[in-house]
């Protein structure tokens, strides 16, 4: 078991996502920064579907009760293993009783902690990703325990990875969304010439942007939305749906973030700046 001494600000279990239920209104969920979570699982030679911890802004304090191997990636937080600083994208051997403590956030917003074999929390509709009320919890609680498989020894092909950080990137590549053609010249200019600021309203469901662009009066019938769908409300507010975003919506879908752009955005927090760049699909 992994004992959670302190859960941190918003820590969840996430895997690649919950597929096949979107036609029943179930969001796909899964890790927000799939680039980072894929690398930490690959280093540990886990299945692509292995579940890891997604740690947001303020990290937890954790005690490992069985031997295993771990790897962290994504956001950089001051992190120590038994009071010794640890690095990202590097495998660490864990002995029963080891304590992993997260400290101050240095860069990015979401950190991923993977364990050899993946965390073994409840499996609901094909995924362990937290999404209440499908899963009983929406985030970790202090003093809870998370099961994992004991791994006394493991010879990894790679011990560590030199990763280029996505944090310095602030340009989100987008393709045209289904309602792109409805945008006016003025709206297009505002979208692609300005910098935008991440609003307070940002979470696993959606990121809102502080600056508005010109509004519109075009209504549409409710239709499918995806992670990375950029919506424009009639008042001109921009909402970017993320992994827990609803499966359908009634706001104009003006743009669609690339997969990499979703990972870049997942590492942004309130007050950070981004800009949009149009590419062909």
């Amino acid at each position: 078991m992994l004992k959670v001494l302190k859960a941190g600000f918003y820590t969840t279990i996430q895997d690649r996502g919950r597929f096949n239920y979107r036609n029943m209104g179930v969001p796909v969920s899964g890790t927000m920064d799939q680039v980072a979570s894929t690398y930490v699982n690959q280093l540990l030679e886990n299945d692509a579907t292995a579940a890891c911890l997604e740690i947001t802004m303020t990290g937890p304090t954790l005690v490992f009760e069985e031997d295993t191997y771990i790897c962290m990636g994504g956001a950089k937080l001051e992190t120590t293993l038994n009071n010794v600083p640890v690095q990202l994208y590097k495998i660490y051997k864990i002995v029963a009783g080891d304590i992993l403590s997260y400290g101050k956030l240095e860069n990015g917003f979401r950190n991923y902690l993977a364990v050899k074999g993946g965390f073994q929390t409840e499996f609901v509709l094909g995924s362990r990703s937290f999404y209440k009320p499908l899963t009983s919890l929406n985030r970790l609680k202090d003093h809870m325990e998370i099961p994992y498989i004991t791994t006394p020894s493991f010879e990894s092909k790679l011990q560590e990875l030199q990763m280029e950080s996505l944090f310095s990137e602030s340009v989100l590549t987008v393709s045209k969304g289904p309602e792109y053609e409805q945008l006016t010249g003025k709206q297009l200019k505002q979208l692609f010439s300005k910098e935008f600021t991440i609003a307070k309203e940002n979470n696993r469901m959606a990121y809102q942007l502080e600056e508005f662009i010109e509004g519109h009066e075009i209504s549409m019938l409710t239709s499918a939305t995806l992670p990375g769908t950029v919506q424009l409300t009639s008042e001109g507010k921009i909402i970017i749906l993320m992994r827990d975003g609803q499966t359908t919506g009634g706001y104009s879908r003006i743009l669609q973030l690339s997969k990499k752009a979703i990972s870049i955005l997942a590492q942004k927090k309130y007050g950070d700046q981004i800009s949009l760049k149009l590419i062909e699909v």
């Binding site: 597929f19 096949n20 979107r22 036609n23 019938l221 409710t222 239709s223 499918a224 995806l226 499966t247 359908t248 699909v281």
Partner: peptide, 21 residues
């Protein structure tokens, strides 16, 4: 594949592989 239909639309989503439009 996954499908989402609503009112006047049907969306096909490829779970893993990018599609050639």
């Amino acid at each position: 594949w996954e499908t989402i239909s609503a009112y006047n639309s049907l969306t096909l989503i490829s779970k893993e592989q990018p599609i050639s439009f």
